[in-house]
């Protein structure tokens, strides 16, 4: 019998990192190294309980172990959050198409992220930084609801040291502890003026943030085929058969999850 695309391979949880009250990062060691490309996703299987799709948040140059950052948002993620070091899970993947890094080479890269949408972007950032000589400039603009909601808090300085230019904002801060910019992530463009002509932009975050982030990038002069979006849809089979993640004529799992804005801009409800 040929390969069963629905069968998961075993993997072990080798570490759990609390990012925020609702977000954890799991370090996963699959029985066979997961050779993914940054931006591709996996199905995270709780045997007998359910499956949910996530994009690894670690560099694609590490296949032995990878990380996946998960927000508690529903039935399956509620259970995933109870996992401890040593627990066995299943992994299906890698699935879909990742970020087309070859299209980014030699360009100024602007990464626009919001909330837990930072997960796939962290994978991208780490992958880019590992070969930073290939890219002209790497900038990250990251917005969170409050300072407590920032994921990967302790890592930003390290990324700066490795060569990324980073700007951060929070929507609000009632305690006064936040010394940086306050406002939705697009407010960061008040201070920085990216070179849209020479750049590409990659966006991931909650739907409302992706919508206004994309509109802002268009206003700044990015052409629709230079804006890359990681689309979140209800991927079930992950291989283009079950129909759940239909986005217009595309299946996000097979044709995405990374799309150029130009490919999907005319589809109704892309931000819903």
């Amino acid at each position: 019998m040929s390969k069963d695309p629905y069968r998961a391979i075993d993997a072990w949880i080798t570490g759990v990192i609390d990012e925020t009250p609702a977000i954890k990062t799991f370090v996963v060691k699959p029985e066979i190294p997961l050779k993914f490309r940054t931006g591709q996703f996996i199905q995270f299987t709780l045997y007998g309980e359910g499956e949910a799709p996530f994009t690894p948040s670690s560099s694609h140059f590490e296949a032995e172990k990878f990380e996946v950052t998960i927000m508690r948002a529903g039935r399956v993620t509620e259970k995933i959050h109870k996992l401890k070091q040593g627990d066995v899970i299943g992994i299906r993947g890698p699935l879909g198409n990742g970020y087309p890094l070859e299209e980014f080479e030699g360009k100024e890269i602007l990464i626009l992220g919001g909330g837990v949408g930072m997960a796939p972007l962290r994978s991208l950032l780490l992958t880019l930084l590992a070969e930073k000589e290939k890219y002209k400039k790497i900038s990250l603009l990251y917005g969170s609801k409050t300072p407590d909601d920032i994921v990967y808090k302790s890592q930003f300085d390290n990324w700066r040291k490795k060569g990324a230019e980073i700007f951060q904002s929070v929507d609000k801060c009632e305690t006064g502890e936040w010394k940086g910019k306050i406002g939705v992530v697009t407010c960061l463009f008040e201070d920085i003026k990216p070179n849209a002509e020479k750049g590409v932009a990659i966006v991931c975050g909650p739907p409302i943030m992706m919508k206004f982030g994309t509109l802002k990038l268009l206003e700044l002069g990015y052409s629709p085929d230079r804006i890359y979006l990681s689309m979140e849809k209800n991927m079930s089979c992950g291989i283009g058969k079950c129909g759940h993640c239909a986005l217009g004529k595309y299946f996000v799992c097979k044709d995405g999850p990374v799309f150029k804005y130009s490919e999907i801009k005319d589809i109704e409800g892309i931000w819903d």
């Binding site: 949910a52 927000m71 948002a73 529903g74 039935r75 399956v76 993620t77 909650p206 739907p207 979140e232 849809k233 209800n234 079950c242 129909g243 759940h244 993640c245 239909a246 986005l247 109704e268 409800g269 892309i270 819903d272």
Partner: peptide, 18 residues
């Protein structure tokens, strides 16, 4: 499954394009 069910395209965060 059916694309005509209200929860068919809903994601865990609650977003639902249809």
């Amino acid at each position: 499954d059916s694309c005509q069910y209200p929860g068919y395209a809903r994601v865990a965060g609650g977003a639902n394009p249809r």
